[in-house]
Design a protein around this nucleic acid. Structure first.
Lengths: 337, 337
DNA sequence: TTGAAAGCGCTAACAT
DNA sequence: ATGTTAGCGCTTTCAA
């Protein structure tokens, strides 16, 4: 009831401009079959009344909203922030708007169901949706969906994925090339594919170099600073501590550095630290940190590019798009050779 | 693959469950006048068909969407990220969902107009809207609006504001109390109220202590690291350089620290640095940084609380809500006494 | 070039 | 307890 009072609708504009609603609609959508004079008048009234078309009504009637939807598991994660940066860049290029949807509600629902529900929800007001680190890749929607870093082995929808294994392998080659033989590893959340692949890269890297795997050097983790801190403490207290630590992500690496410092060690003088992922904030304050740049923002950027292509009916070549990792060496690891 | 199927509507559910659409609607909205048996059946069909109600249609018909809207000028700003944290906390408490709206489009529109347009836009799919650092506080909408840190002297809508002046004064008292007499200042974006107030606090702080103001010690800035870096270089190269620098925000402070280090100075041994604002990332990596905690996330949290109250028809006492600043001293400033 | 009218998917009276 | 129906604000045929 209160709504009708304050909201200016297309009817109000039509009435004030002495035309029909369809004419106003035509002006709004820049149709070319409107008399310049009429067009002018309608625009003036729109301006005067401060009219804004209702997203809800518009998207209900026509497919096109010029808005892209984004669904994230956790907006408080720096990872999420970084992805948004990339997406923001891309939508700016294409003139799209962006709607990010987050639920503050119950976490009772299983992830796949929740994700599907959110996608359908956003689908009603957007032209396409991007989902970050989903647990499912099957969505039954009218408009296209692109997922980023899905936790699924064989994604069934368009997906942007990272080369975790190759990146981890590169880290190991780098460290081993510097002469390190005892290299510690602190893992990520074991239920995530990325964590498993990084660990695999660690293990295979050792094997390729003929270095026997020492289980003591592998610490569990969960992609947090705390995990890095605790894991590093354990590793550094070993009778024969590692000379280098490979952390599953940058947050973990930061925890490692903190622990090392607290134990009186200097990075990189006494310990080489490498972290996967490369969140600028982290690296900025830690020149001592060599990272595998996963170009997280690039993942957001590419996902958006692909999605826009799909919306326009230009499907990309394949279903999967790999973002290569790049080892960023900050002259910060100790050469033992 | 089940992609690109047409959307499942309430009609499909009704048909499959052998009931009318209104019955399905009742089940969806948990009305109590539905036979348990029917309810069960409808729910089963909903589950089976993977039905999700259309946000667009729902919000068009009924006033209640259970979604809160958020409008930000720049999602890439750490400030924005921090505010989102607070909002996220609050919506979780109340079981609301959140929609963040950003435009990648033209920046041609004047800010007030754009802000008003976005508010109307989001208004059609939300129960209320929060706008961060708006240039206007007059919105003609049916549902409530709360602004955070408006760049307006006398906000005309519910607003959460910071106590910039008092915070800056506290910084000066602290530094002067430590014995500093030559204190440099690097400003924020001069067109923003916050920057003006902080500068005022700096000046008045000096005056209260009877320290003459030296214009050389005031450098312009824009809330960026670069500004801090350049400003600090200038200050530190003065014939009689300051012993402490008060930076307009934390980013600027980081730039100051970088510049000091590059010039071979150690913080805080050779220079005391205080920054306004307190973004955890920045402070975390800079134990040397004493900051004025503006509780940015607290601003988001409070704005949401107020908005939820307004939605529920419980208006708060006044139009303005002040978030007090708090000086966080990390034992990092040098005592000259 | 413009207007009338039919819905989009949904909720909320009003019926039954 | 359930069905029928009238719109919400908008776009889009189809007529005029």
């Amino acid at each position: 009831m209160g709504r009708n009072r304050t909201t200016v609708t297309i009817r109000d504009v039509a009435r004030a401009a002495n035309v029909s609603v369809s004419t106003v609609s035509r002006v709004l959508n820049n149709k070319d079959d409107v008399a310049p004079e009429t067009c002018q008048r309608v625009r003036a009234v729109i301006e005067e009344l401060g009219y804004t078309s209702s997203l809800a009504a518009r998207s209900m009637r026509s497919r096109r909203t010029n808005v892209i939807g984004l669904i994230m598991p956790d907006v408080e994660d720096p990872f999420a922030f970084q992805i948004m940066r990339g997406i923001n860049r891309a939508i700016a290029e294409h003139g799209y708007d962006l709607i990010l949807y987050t639920s503050g509600g119950t976490k009772k629902e299983s992830s796949p169901d929740r994700e599907r529900r959110y996608v359908s929800l956003l689908n009603t007001v957007t032209d396409g949706v991007i989902v970050v680190t989903p647990a499912t890749t099957t969505f039954s929607t009218a408009s296209p969906v692109v997922v980023i870093d899905p936790n699924i082995d064989e994604p069934e929808c368009h997906a942007v994925i990272a080369t975790n294994y190759a990146g981890a392998l590169a880290v190991m080659e780098y460290l081993i090339g510097l002469g390190h033989r005892r290299i510690g590893f602190i893992g990520g959340r074991p239920e995530l594919k990325s964590a498993v692949q990084r660990l695999q890269g660690y293990q295979d890297g050792l094997q390729r170099a003929g270095i026997p795997l020492d289980p003591e050097l592998i610490q569990g983790g969960d992609y947090t600073r705390e995990a890095g801190f605790i894991g590093a403490q354990r590793l550094l207290r070993l009778p024969s501590p590692p000379t280098a630590i490979f952390a599953a992500n940058d947050q973990t690496a930061i925890g490692v550095i903190q622990a090392a410092r607290q134990m009186g060690l200097e990075v990189p003088r006494d310990l080489s630290v490498v972290g996967f992922d490369n969140i600028p904030e982290a690296a900025y304050f830690n020149p001592a940190l060599t990272t595998v740049d996963q170009s997280i923002d690039q993942m957001g950027y590419m996902a958006t590019q692909i999605l826009v292509g799909l919306i326009r009916g230009e499907p990309p070549n394949g279903l999967l798009y790999e973002i290569p990792t790049q080892l960023i060496i900050r002259d910060s690891c100790r050469a033992l050779l």
